[in-house]
């Protein structure tokens, strides 16, 4: 597949009187054509800085970026017409109506104004199109932002937290919309904190922490890479739980005794081996479930942001920052 977005070695340092802060520290990312690509990272990890840099709003200090095969920011004006984007919270001039806001953008971008009602309908704002934006809720502004990004019929759609402020119905509609857009051939880069959504929608992901890529690949690959291979075993009532654990440990498995009648077993060649070993000793199971890692687990593990009881994690605390002093240098 052809990459529509490539970033390599991207650097951005913010300097202030308090010192320098590396927002991006040699970040790399590739998004293939036709994919829905999830872009994940904890707060302050550099997601929005990456997107703003890509879209010409922030000047990088180093690195190489291409969009739709053209180097940016040098050739950004040539490809901007094919890239729809919303960055962070939706921002519009509040005294204009949604219709006016979009028609002004259409004029500025040389897009047919006739498309405005079409995209407003698509995001569910058709009936509120003539109301001033300042009367909109956050979710409605978010819908308007998505409409503005879709106005140019983009080849690549970049959405930063598009589900912010949306109600559950809105989130589901957004998910469907992403799928439909992807099915129509559009490439979507989706930054979000709703990891379950990302797992449902995305074909591939990049995870960033402290301005660096810490993993990337298809969702299945990333999950598989971090699959512990653990299996939850529930024994029949009145079974000798310790005996079962001993049998499995003798076979080389790591066994954790959980609640009564339940074990977590790792490092076995497969569930069949567990059933066979225990059945040979006339111990029978009533449940055998592979424990699959989900994206949230992988995210928390890789970014080092798993909550620890009694500790209030600060936004700059994460796995990479702790080891590499990425912030506040």
């Amino acid at each position: 597949m052809t990459p529509v977005l490539e970033i390599s070695g991207l650097r951005k340092t913010y300097r202030s009187r308090k010192g320098a802060r590396n927002a991006l520290d040699g970040f790399d990312m590739v998004v293939e054509a036709g994919q829905v690509h999830g872009f994940l990272g904890p707060n302050g990890s550099g997601k929005t800085t990456t997107l703003r840099t890509l879209l010409g709003l922030i000047q990088p200090d180093g690195g190489h970026m291409t969009l739709l095969g053209r180097e940016v920011p040098r050739h950004l004006p040539e490809v901007a017409g094919r890239v729809g984007a919303i960055v962070e919270s939706p921002q519009f001039f509040g005294r204009f109506t949604a219709e006016t806001t979009l028609s002004l953008l259409a004029d500025a971008g040389g897009v047919d104004r006739g498309r405005v009602p079409e995209v407003l309908d698509l995001v569910g704002l058709r009936d509120r199109a003539k109301e001033k934006v300042k009367t909109y809720s956050l979710g409605m502004k978010q819908r308007l932002a998505v409409a503005s990004a879709l106005l140019k019929k983009p080849t690549l759609l970049i959405l930063d937290e598009p589900a912010n402020g949306l109600d559950p119905g809105g989130i589901r509609e957004m998910r469907t919309l992403m799928r439909d857009l992807s099915a129509s051939g559009m490439t979507v880069l989706l930054s979000s904190h709703i990891l379950a959504e990302i797992q449902l929608i995305c074909d591939s992901v990049t995870i960033i922490s402290a301005g660096r890529r810490i993993t990337a690949g298809s969702v299945a690959e990333v999950l598989a890479r971090h699959d512990s291979g653990a299996v939850r075993v529930r024994l029949e009532p009145d079974t000798d739980q310790e005996e079962a654990a001993r049998i499995l440990r003798e076979a080389g498995a790591q066994v954790t005794v959980e609640t009564a009648g339940q074990l977590t077993v790792r490092d076995v060649t497969g569930p069949a081996q567990i059933t066979r070993l225990l059945a040979q000793r006339e111990i029978y199971l009533c449940e055998l479930t592979p424990i699959a890692a989900d994206l949230e687990d992988v995210f928390l593990e890789l970014t080092g942001t798993t909550p620890v009881e009694g500790h209030h994690r600060q936004v700059d605390e994460n796995a990479l920052a702790a080891s590499q002093d990425g912030w506040g240098r």
Binding site: P73, F92, F93, G94, A108, K152
Partner: peptide
């Protein structure tokens, strides 16, 4: 001023990055 403050300028720059 209102364009900058409301963020509409940023939106416009996404459309016309010049």
């Amino acid at each position: 001023g209102a364009e900058w403050h409301s963020g509409a300028m940023m939106n416009l720059l996404l459309w016309r990055p010049q």
